[in-house]
Design a protein around this nucleic acid. Structure first.
Length: 660
RNA sequence: GCGCCCAUAGCUCAGCUGGAUAGAGCAACGGAUUUCUAAUCCGUAGGCCGGGGGUUCGAAUCCCUCUGGGCGUACCA
């Protein structure tokens, strides 16, 4: 049991005498924000005193009087309006830290009630190469997957790939009409991706052409309205409603203007190339024809099915390359196509249960309190991703026996998931837990969604390459800088090792930069910052780890043997105590990650841990320590630190290297 | 129109169910080096937590309102 749980247990015994609902008060025992107040603090006396109508300070004193904690902490102090400050005894900390020295799990207990969890993450589209938009779901989902698994929950990582939608029709149409045969022979997936982009571009071109006149009309309308309002504005000085009106009109005008610019750009992109213009002219119905290909595929058309069976494995193999590089694995990869045979039945069931009704020829679930319906069959008879998601839920409950289903998906789909979960509950899945682990957008330095300079989405592969290349430079510089006592250069890493370190550092930097942010926030993608050699980066922790490995290498010390020897950790310097306390808090960090699905709690913990270690390492000699017992104690602390950091990083999907 | 989210140091961001003097990192400035890997450590400075009101012992956090931004709004997934 971790320190915090132990304390809470002790408090609960006392608090339950004072209130029938001790839980929220027990939860108010937490690590101190400021070390000056001790190691932990209990803030429960104030609200409890309010509930009971007594004096908070005297209640705090009463709680302190009843608590039996003399074995683990110094006498408790009541401070301020009724805070209870808790300072752990060194003996107790020492006992705890020595307990985990030889514990393979570093004091992390297995879940007492393992859940059956399905984590749905990454979910790329087979039709197009993975891009920066897939990064967060992939990295975040995988980190959660690892933490759940480490804590012994039964987890299924499922990659719900998009292999069945409209985009696939575009590939089929492209393949049949626009194929570059030699390109396809040399790089099938690349050519398919090109075809997808091309068909998609041509069809948005026609859409844009069709939309433009109406868009211009709308813009005109708002422009006129705005001008009219501006003329009258003198007569409406101080009229709030009028001002608001004018503002909205201006905003609308600007918005439509933006739309015009966007459409014109799409059109210009095609028309500036005679080749593209020609293609566009020869395929005016391209969008419709692509949709037809999708429909044929869904209807079981022989040729399209054959092509689908040919393309999907190829595309998956290409995506797998990125997953291998990112060290990401799934237990199942059930794409949308997997659920296709179940969709008709889902709609039927929803209808017979009276949950779904026809509206405008479409089949919808209307959920009380929600304006937007949940559309499960389109007016043309095709199913939607809502239908697939419902079929997926049924599958995950019935076949996988999942009690918790986690979706790691962009926050923009919040409404979809709200409706989906609501529908699932109406459908009868009331005893299952559905969680939308939503996340924000990755922005460029212009604070707009991250794009290349020309406005294209950034491919994931090139993102990784760029980071690794940059890391390689840093690795080179750093290794070249190493010198011996006489000042002669002594680089330690050969070329192969440098390349491996660069890969670890570069990929780690990207993952860490993503995970350290609160997932719900947007964040600015900044390669320089994530690969900075100073500060809160993966590199900082990887470096701390490598330093420890260096100690054992130079000292020729076998870590296994060390752990099994008679020595133990003792405190001779405050930094040793601080580091130990920090190492003992690993499980608190993991609890936090699990309860909120927030890996940034773990990154924060690891940064603090690496920092505590660096401070300790600055203050305390290890190999050079003369006193054998102290030396062993410090070596044990180093070993433990390295294991905590490596384990923590591994749970985030970030690798370490012995030397860098 | 309706709905959801955001605004915290010069910059990038934390801040868990309301808790003590609002924290990191970067950048700035000042220190530490016969380096057990300085990709390090220690310190200084930097804030009306967007504005206003409310709830209470106590608010960055909860409620209302205004301002400024983002996103979503039935047949794309």
């Amino acid at each position: 049991m971790n320190t915090l749980s132990e304390l809470r247990d002790r408090f609960e015994k006392v608090l339950s005498e004072l209130t029938p609902t001790p839980d929220p008060f027990v939860a108010m025992i937490k690590p101190t924000q400021d070390a000056a107040f001790g190691d932990f603090q209990a803030n429960c006396a104030m609200p409890l005193a309010k509930q009971r109508g007594t004096n908070p300070r005297s209640l705090a004193a009463e709680i302190v009087g009843k608590l039996d904690v003399t074995d683990l902490c110094h006498p408790l102090e009541v401070a301020g309006p009724g805070f209870i400050n808790i300072r752990l005894k060194d003996e107790w900390l020492i006992e705890r830290i020595n307990n985990i020295v030889s514990d393979a799990r570093l004091g992390i207990e297995l879940a007492t009630k393992p859940k059956r969890v399905v984590i749905d993450y990454s979910a790329p589209n087979v039709a197009k190469p993975m891009h920066v938009g897939h990064l967060r779901s992939t990295v975040l989902g995988n980190a959660l997957y690892r933490v759940f698994k480490f804590c012994d929950h039964q987890v299924v990582g499922d990659n719900h790939i998009g292999d069945w939608g409209t985009q696939f029709g575009m590939i089929l149409f492209g393949y049949k009409n626009l194929l570059d045969v030699s390109a396809f022979e040399s790089n099938a997936v690349g050519e398919l991706a090109r075809l997808y982009r091309l068909v998609s571009q041509l069809s948005t071109y026609h859409d844009a052409k069709a939309e433009l006149p109406e868009t211009i009309k709308q813009h005109e309308q708002y422009r006129e309205q705005r001008e009219g309002l501006e003329k009258e504005s003198d007569q409406h000085q101080g009229d709030k409603d009028f001002a608001k009106d004018l503002k909205t009109t201006r905003a609308n005008e600007a918005q439509w203007n933006q739309q015009i610019v966007a459409l014109k750009r799409i059109i210009a992109d095609i028309e500036s190339s005679s080749l593209l213009k020609n293609l566009a002219d020869t395929h005016p119905q391209i969008a419709e024809l692509a949709r037809l290909e999708t429909a044929k595929l869904h209807a079981g058309d022989e040729e399209n099915t054959r092509l689908w069976n040919q393309f999907v494995p190829q595309c998956l193999a290409a995506i797998q390359g990125i997953y291998d590089r990112l060290d990401i694995r799934f237990d199942t990869t059930h794409g949308e196509s997997y659920y296709n045979p179940m969709l008709a039945n889902v709609v039927e069931e929803m209808q017979t249960k009276g949950l779904a009704v026809e509206s405008d020829k479409a089949i919808c679930v209307f959920i009380p309190g929600n304006a937007a319906p949940f559309l499960i069959r389109k007016s043309d008879g095709a199913f939607t991703y809502a239908t697939t998601d419902l079929a997926t839920i049924r599958y995950r409950v019935k076949d996988l026996n999942a009690d918790t289903m986690i979706y790691v998906v962009d926050t923009r789909q919040s409404e979809h998931f709200r409706l989906l979960f609501e529908t699932a509950r109406l459908w009868g899945y009331v005893d299952r837990q559905f969680v939308h682990v939503n996340f924000g957008t990755i922005l460029g330095k212009d604070n707009k969604p991250y794009k290349t300079r020309s406005g294209d989405t950034v491919g994931l592969e090139s993102l990784l390459d760029a980071a690794v290349a940059k890391a390689r430079q840093i690795v080179n510089e750093n290794d070249d800088r190493k010198k011996d006592d006489a000042g002669n250069p002594t680089p330690e890493l050969d070329d192969v090792t440098r390349a491996a370190v660069a890969e670890t550092v570069g990929i780690g930097a990207i993952k860490y930069a993503d995970l350290r942010h609160n997932r719900e926030s947007d964040y600015v993608y900044d390669e320089d910052k994530m690969l900075a050699t100073t500060g809160d980066t993966a590199t900082y922790m990887q470096y701390a780890y490598a330093r420890v490995c260096g100690i054992f290498r130079r000292g020729a010390i076998n870590r296994e043997t060390l752990r099994n020897e008679a020595g133990h950790i003792r405190f001779t310097h405050p930094s040793e105590r601080a580091l130990s306390l920090q190492l003992l808090r690993f499980s608190e960090a993991l609890d936090g990650v699990l309860s909120e699905c927030r890996p940034n709690i773990l990154t924060d913990y690891l940064f603090t841990t690496a920092n505590s270690f660096s401070t300790f390492y600055q203050e305390c000699k290890v190999l050079k320590e003369q006193d054998a017992a102290i030396r062993t104690s410090r070596l044990l602390l180093c070993d433990l630190t390295a294991r905590v950091i490596a384990t923590g990083l591994e749970l985030l999907g970030i690798k370490t290297c012995e030397q860098m």
